[in-house]
């Protein structure tokens, strides 16, 4: 059981690292981020709002992940937002006349195809963690001594 718990810890650590890094770099370069989002045909109309809403959501999910009681909600949140990002990339890759990038910091050097893979991997990690978390939680309920 320890290995599973360790897996969740690592996934959560990775998510918090990813979200805080991405949110931080977006907020620091707020104006540039608005400019980049404005070039995306999907979200250009909402760029000024999304430019702070997205990092705020990322930070909120990180906080949920860090508080053990809300960890499951954090994992659901991580899954949801990674799923959205993945869909976003899919739509952009298939329908955009030109492909702008508005990811934070070094992530913007990744290119769209590797980025898509990166997001899919993180989405799957979130799903696996939710299932493992549930198992841990259930076994904890059935047999408290396991922890």
């Amino acid at each position: 059981m320890k290995r599973r718990a360790l897996f969740i810890e690592i996934v959560i650590f990775l998510f918090v690292l990813l979200f805080l890094y991405a949110a931080g770099s977006k907020l620091i370069q707020y104006k540039e981020f608005v400019g980049q989002m404005g070039k995306s045909f999907l979200v250009s109309a909402y760029a000024p709002i999304l430019a702070w809403l997205v990092p705020v959501i990322e930070i909120a999910i990180s906080i949920l992940l860090l508080i053990p009681r809300f960890r499951l909600y954090g994992l659901y949140g991580s899954f949801f937002i990674m799923f959205l990002f993945t869909l976003y990339i899919l739509v952009i890759l298939n329908f955009a006349p030109e492909v702008p990038c508005s990811c934070g910091g070094i992530l913007s050097n990744m290119g769209w195809k590797p980025h898509l893979l990166f997001n899919v991997v993180f989405t799957i990690l979130a799903v696996i963690s939710i299932f493992i978390h549930n198992k841990e939680f259930v076994s904890f309920r059935n047999n408290p001594s396991v922890t």
Partner: peptide, 25 residues
């Protein structure tokens, strides 16, 4: 319950993207 929650979150995500797509300039 987990599967249902995950699927409904995914559904909401798809819905958001569809709305964005149809409302996009």
């Amino acid at each position: 319950r987990i599967i249902i929650t995950i699927l409904s979150l995914a559904g909401v995500g798809c819905l958001i993207m569809a709305v964005l797509f149809y409302a996009s300039a």
